[in-house]
Structure formats: C-alpha cells, structure tokens
C-alpha cells in the first residue's frame, strides 16, 4: 500500500505542476481556469489518497467539498471571462492590467 500512496502523490504533484504551469504560462483566460481545475484536482487526489491510507473519511469529504466549490468557481470564473470578453473583446489575461499601480 505504501508504494501505491507514493504513486498517487506523484500523480498529484505532476498534476499540480502542470496546473501551475498552465496558470502562469497560458494567456487564454479559459485555459487558466482549466489549469486551476487541475491544481484543485491534484489536491483532491492527495486528500483522497491520505484519507484512504488512514482509513478516515474526512479526506474524502473534503475532496467532495473541493469539487463542489470548484464547480461554483468555474461558474463564476467563466462568467467573469465572458464579461471580460464583452468589455475588452479579448480573453488575453496579459491585456487585463487595469489594476496596474
């Protein structure tokens, strides 16, 4: 079982890194959103893996919460992207720098 845990953790780490890369590197806002999903899911994997290892359900319950929150997040995020597009005719995150100091 120990090996199995490591593999899950690796998977989670890989997914997390891919997600981080996507958030930092992609210019398309939708792609950024998707990368955030990847990060969240990598966390889910970790949670579920540890939960299984300790034989406690709380990790899995957390994962379920995260999925629910992620769903809402995507909803809000897509709506934001949609509004961004309407206002700026682009969903390039580099061009959204209204908050520049």
């Amino acid at each position: 079982m120990d090996l199995m845990l490591n593999q899950f953790l690796f998977l989670g780490a890989i997914l997390f890194c891919i997600g981080v890369y996507g958030v930092l590197a992609r210019r398309n806002a939708v792609m950024v959103l998707m990368s955030i999903e990847l990060i969240l899911n990598s966390v889910n994997i970790n949670l579920v893996a540890f939960s299984t290892m300790w034989g406690v359900a709380s990790g899995a319950v957390f994962a379920l919460f995260v999925i629910a929150v992620a769903a809402a997040e995507v909803g809000v995020g897509l709506a934001l992207v949609l509004m961004l597009y309407r206002n700026m005719r682009s969903i390039d995150v580099d061009r959204v720098d209204l908050m520049k100091g």
Partner: peptide, 14 residues
C-alpha cells in the same frame, strides 16, 4: 513597490 503591481494576474501568481 508600485512597480511590482503590474495588474497582471499571472505575474502575481508567479
């Protein structure tokens, strides 16, 4: 410090 604030989300993320 204001130079740090580019308004670019990805930079913040980085």
């Amino acid at each position: 410090l204001r130079r740090l604030q580019t308004g670019k989300v990805q930079q913040y993320g980085a």
